[in-house]
Computed example of a mutant assay.
Amino acid sequence: MGWWTIPVITLVCFTLYGIEGIGEELEDPFGYDKNDIRIDAIIEDCREEVMVLLESWKKGGEEYYL
């Protein structure tokens, strides 16, 4: 391929490094980086919803009976 080898290899290397970077992010999605999943916020929302359901159940609210 002659001189076309350099751009082709460069393109392949950047593509493979990009796939490697995506794999590293998918490997550990929870943390404190800007693009990580905020699991603490999700857990807090779930806790608040369960507490609301429990309070309604304690008061005898019939809309939450199973």
Rank of each mutant, 00 (worst) to 15 (best):
T5F: 09
C46H: 13
W57A: 15
E24A: 02
P29Q: 02
I9F: 10
F14C: 15
L53C: 07
E49L: 01
M1E: 04
L26Y: 02
E55Q: 12
T10D: 13
D40T: 06
T15Y: 07
P7D: 00
I43F: 00
G21C: 08
K59N: 15
I42E: 07
V12K: 03
I37C: 03
W3L: 12
I42A: 04
E62H: 08
V12Q: 09
E48R: 09
D33S: 04
E62T: 12
A41V: 13
P7H: 05
N35Q: 12
V50P: 02
G23N: 10
W57Y: 05
F14H: 09
L54W: 07
Y17L: 13
E63R: 14
V50S: 05
V8W: 03
E20L: 12
E48A: 13
E48Y: 08
L53V: 03
D40R: 10
V50T: 15
G23V: 07
S56E: 10
M51Q: 14
E25P: 00
T15E: 04
F30I: 14
C13R: 12
G2H: 00
E48L: 01
L53A: 12
E44P: 13
G2I: 02
E55L: 08
W57C: 06
W4D: 11
G61E: 11
N35T: 08
E48N: 15
I43R: 07
E27S: 15
I9G: 00
I19H: 08
E25F: 13
